[in-house]
């Protein structure tokens, strides 16, 4: 599977260089970073919402497998958030001549990144598995409102003037070879995401089984030890 995916990535990369340079860009040949930038925020938004849905399922059922699914989705969503930022910053430098130009969309996505950085910070601060799953699940649900606001509402507010086009697809600005490549990359990224997600969930479930097995062994050895109390040092009754 991984060889097929690597081949597909290589094929599409070559394809991106076969289409003519984009018109209306400062450096048309470098504007190809857009192909890699475009699918990232879409997948990041979807993954973060699916992660919140899995968290909700965990809160309803208390089944740790939902938490594994939630963390797998959140981790992948976070990776795509980072890729969005990196490719966006590169695009900003190529098109507008500065790495960071305080564009409201760029800033709002940075805020999304911070929201989910706090999610992982919370997970790291809790030691009990179920408490970690519950609290991070609740945070994922609470974070959904500001994240939806930042991704969908904020860039469309009348007072927000952004360099970012928000309706390139709706207005049919991406067409011809460009549209095919963008769609092909979106499909490829989706397939890679599903593949990585399945691997992460499988690893998480195996880890869970291993932990259960260890608990079982600990309990079993606890039973066989009987009621004898082993004291490593003599207990003094003086004083």
């Amino acid at each position: 599977m991984k060889y097929l995916l690597a081949l597909a990535v290589a094929g599409i990369t070559v394809w991106t260089f076969m289409v003519p340079d984009a018109v209306g860009f400062q450096m048309p040949e470098l504007a190809r970073i857009f192909f890699w930038h475009f699918p990232c925020p879409i997948l990041a938004s979807i993954l973060l919402m699916v992660g919140a849905w899995f968290s909700w399922k965990y809160l309803k059922t208390n089944d740790m497998r939902w938490d594994i699914r939630a963390i797998a989705t959140m981790e992948l969503g976070y990776v795509f958030c980072l890729l969005t930022m990196v490719t966006g910053i590169m695009f900003s430098q190529v098109q507008w001549g500065t790495w960071w130009q305080k564009d409201p969309r760029q800033t709002s996505f940075l805020m999304v990144l911070l929201v989910y950085a706090a999610y992982f910070g919370l997970r790291g601060a809790l030691t009990d598995d179920h408490r970690r799953a519950t609290n991070s699940g609740v945070y994922a649900l609470a974070a959904l409102m500001p994240v939806l606001f930042l991704i969908f509402v904020f860039p469309r507010l009348p007072q927000v003037q952004s360099f970012h086009p928000s309706d390139s697809i709706m207005k049919g600005q991406i067409k011809g070879g460009y549209a095919y490549i963008v769609m092909a990359l979106l499909a490829l990224f989706t397939i890679i995401t599903v593949w990585l997600y399945r691997m992460r969930v499988r690893a998480g479930v195996l880890e869970l089984k291993l932990e259960d097995m260890n608990h079982g062994l600990e309990n079993h050895s606890g039973d066989s030890a009987g009621t004898t109390v082993v004291r490593p040092v003599p207990v003094s009754h003086e004083g």
């Binding site: 911070l114 706090a118 910070g121 609470a142 974070a143 930042l150």
Partner: peptide
Amino acid sequence: LAGVLAVPLLLPL
């Protein structure tokens, strides 16, 4: 940690 969690949630506000 309370501050770390609350600030990103309240930034849109």
